[in-house]
Design a protein around this nucleic acid. Structure first.
Lengths: 154, 154
DNA sequence: TCCTTTTCAGACTAAAACAGTCCTATATAC
DNA sequence: GTATATAGGACTGTTTTAGTCTGAAAAGGA
């Protein structure tokens, strides 16, 4: 079914949120609120994006996340790779010298690489900016209420 | 990591074997021998290729499998789809009307479809013939020995 | 300086997807 | 009629993945 992981999907959505509000520090709970994703999942994903150097983080009070580069400079391949690892349709295409145990019987290896490159090429054409259409004008201040209190308040 | 399933990979390998010996009836054990794959796995994969109409099967003694069309007429997408189902990078791209629960918050859906089409386009360029380079000239008659006997023979 | 807020790092658990195997039924050739 | 092959489906074990949780580190403000 050739699909990318759900986390990679999330990461694109999160990145578009950051892209829609350039130079605005957004915190994990904010992003969770805006995207509808659970906070821990957002945190986990953002972690990976920071490590990949796509997002800059600021710790501590008034912390949050910002894009490092402009959205037009970020191909979606880079986001996907950051979360899912290198794009490789088959195991053959991962290493130069195949670890493929049936390599001798698999004359299609070089052709796989061609296909792989074609897919990567198709993905590299698209930037984060292309994925960021109309966007809500600003970050709503979040009416964040701890669950326990919220339940008690009802 | 955007990868196709191992079964899809196998199916390409198996198809190239059939493509290399046009109009030759090959049996599951033969294909297993040539590819190095276990027989049950070959059988399972061939089953799906037959159902997809890519391969014709003949039951009974002297049975086996043949390609229905010429290798040049079979895009790899079709093989992959037969085994893995439709190519869909995200769940968004599967249906027309999204079943996506965060659809309202996901303005990237149409853009995903563009990316998806780009990938499919890249894959459609490649036919089975492109994946079938040099091939062993004929089907070796198989020196098939049941495992038990083989062990006893050693 | 201390306390609060927020990210960082890693481990852990549960669930889903997948590969692979096996058994029985059906069709064909001799 | 018997031997040989595929067809169809169910089943199991493994791997991958999603998601959660806990403690540590860093920054801001009182």
């Amino acid at each position: 079914m050739i699909k990318l992981s759900r986390l990679a999907d999330y990461s694109i959505v999160l990145m578009t949120q950051l892209a829609g509000r350039p130079s605005t520090l957004m915190q994990a709970p904010d992003l969770a609120l805006v995207t509808g994703l659970p906070v821990p999942t957002v945190a986990k994903t953002m972690k990976q994006l920071v490590q990949a150097g796509l997002v800059q983080s600021q710790r501590g009070a008034k912390g949050g996340y910002v894009l490092v580069r402009a959205a037009t400079d970020i191909p979606v391949t880079e986001i996907i790779t950051a979360v899912d690892g290198p794009i490789a349709l088959t195991d053959c295409t991962v290493d130069e010298d195949g670890v493929c145990e049936i390599e001798a019987l698999c004359p299609t290896r070089t052709n796989w690489r061609k296909i792989n490159d074609a897919v990567i090429g198709a993905l590299r054409e698209v930037t984060l900016a292309d994925m960021t259409p109309q966007m809500a004008p600003f970050v709503p201040h979040r009416p964040y209420v701890p669950v326990a209190n919220a339940a008690a308040g009802e």
